[in-house]
Every structure is written in C-alpha cells, then in structure tokens.
Design a protein around this nucleic acid. Sequence first.
DNA 1: AAAAATTAGGTAGGTAACCTACCTAATTAT
DNA 2: ATAATTAGGTAGGTTACCTACCTAATTTTT
Lengths: 156, 156
Amino acid sequence: MDNVDRETTQKIMDLFSRFRRLHRACPIPGIKHSEMRILFGVKKSLKVHGCGARISDLSRGMRVTSPTVTQLVNSLESSGLVERTTDPQDRRSIRVILTKKGEETLQTAADAFFSEFHGLVKHLGEEKSQQLIELLTESFNYLRSNTPTKFAGETE
Amino acid sequence: MDNVDRETTQKIMDLFSRFRRLHRACPIPGIKHSEMRILFGVKKSLKVHGCGARISDLSRGMRVTSPTVTQLVNSLESSGLVERTTDPQDRRSIRVILTKKGEETLQTAADAFFSEFHGLVKHLGEEKSQQLIELLTESFNYLRSNTPTKFAGETE
DNA sequence: AAAAATTAGGTAGGTAACCTACCTAATTAT
DNA sequence: ATAATTAGGTAGGTTACCTACCTAATTTTT
C-alpha cells in the first residue's frame, strides 16, 4: 500500500465518519426525524397503493424492526398526526393513515427538507450531483457486500 | 424546478439518509465505536504533541461536549485501555494516555477499520476516490454553511 | 493581596433512535 | 383440529450523544 493510497483512505474514513454525524436536525419543532420518516412512508403508501401502510410495510421500507415502528406510530398517534385503522381483509393487520394535521405537517416538513437538499443540488450543479449519486451508490453497494460491518436492518 | 432536478434531489436525500445509518459496526468486541474515536484521538496527541490528550482537546477534536468525553474516558479507563495522568503545568488539566493494552487494541482496530476503507478505495480506484473526497467535502461545507441544520458539536 | 472571572473537568439526568426477547391474536397449512 | 406462521405489541436495554449545574484551579482585575 503506497502513501497516496493511505492518505486517500484516511480522508475517506474521516469524511464518512463526519457524514454519519451530520444529522440531528429537527425539521419541525415537536416532531422527530425518525417520525418524519414514518410520515413519508405512510404518504407513499397512500399514494402508491391507495391505502394506509401496515407496520410491516413501514418496517421494511425504513429498514428498522417492527417494534421500532410501533413506538414511532404510537408517538405520532398521540400527537394526532396519524391514525390506526383496521384492515378488513386481515384483522391482524392495521393500516396507518395520515390525519389532516399529519398531511399538513408532512407537507411543511417535506418542503423544508427538500429545499435544503435542493440547495445542495443547485450548489453542486447537475453534473457533480449525478457523480455524487453514482459514487455514493457504488460505495454503498461495496460496503454492504464486502465488509463484516453490520448495516441497519439489513434483511433483504 | 424541473423534473430532473427533483429526481436528483430525491436521490441525494435518500442516499444521505442511508449513509447516515451505515455504521453500528463494532470493530472489536467489547469496545464501542465512540470509544475507538477517543483512542484514535489520544494516539494522535501522543504522536503529534508527545503528551497525553486533555479532555478539552478530545472534545474539540471529536466535536462532542466535554461531559461526553468524560464518560467515554471513564469507560475506557475501567476497561484498562487508557489512564488519566495529571498535568504538572496545570493542575486543572488531566492528560489521557494509552496503556499497553490500549495501544494493542487500537492497533488491531485501526487495522480492521483501515482495511475496510482501503478495500473501498481499491474498489473505486484512485480517480473516483479523489472525486468522492472532493464531492463529499464540498457537500459538507455547503450543508454546514447554508442550512439551519444543527451539526454535531459545531462550535468552531 | 483579595475578589471576581474564567477554565478544566466531573456528576446527574435526559433524549433519539435504535435493538432483542418475548407475548397474543389472527390466519394459513397440514 | 392442530401446528406453524404472520402481524403487531410490550418490556427493557444500548449507543451516542446532550444540557444544567457543580467544584477546583488558575487568571485577571481592582
């Protein structure tokens, strides 16, 4: 391993480590980032399948375990942002839907989120943004398949 | 905002979200990732300044608060990986140094860590690795300066 | 030199975002 | 009918942080 290699590796390690800790944003006061992800998931289900999301759907989509989803849905439910409805087809399942307040909150947060990242895309420009997408995807795939690193909820 | 833009932004958001959750590796059983970072910091201080690291040095270097460092150093101390020594120049300060066991543990973990990322660098190749470094750095700088997002321990 | 301010580190207790182990109710397969 | 599977929930734990507040040592100000 030559020195250029060593330095490059060191820099990549450093950047990954910093990016890992880049979050902790609260797009909207009173709502957590992980809850936002649930809201996004429910909305997507509503849009794509025309019905609420099951706990297991959200679990798969977010790559977290179902107890984690249960807790987040509980929290969103007590904030009045989502509702649990029963699935007439399968009484074991529940369908999580957005309340009116949930819809509104999601809209606001999505806009804020989006504009932040859209700012980045504009800043980098189309070409660099595409490059970044490709490089991150490639890195992600490599790390997923070639290291003993445990990935969050890697079950598929 | 056109559709290409929208799609690009969506992808970047997604990738960032996934990368944020890409960690949770325990390089060495019995030692946590955050503790490893302390070990790295102490080693660096020993190498660069020839003396142990102060709590405040580690806090600045890791971009976390000093109580966080205190706890991690406590944990490492009770595992026998580091030791607190008093600074004769300033009796308020302590100097954290590595024990023999700490040196060994660090070496093993550093190798494991390094080879994981070195694998990525080899996989991507020198050119793409450099590109990734540049793009991540640029993105990081942008996000740091242009969003209300709270960054971990951003105090400098 | 005495009082005030600052700095280094520590303690107590909290939070977000996860997890595992285990449980019940409903459905499906044998 | 019984067994297995699936959906969701409960209880309790972990990691990686944080804020508020405290004491002891050092500096600065008067």
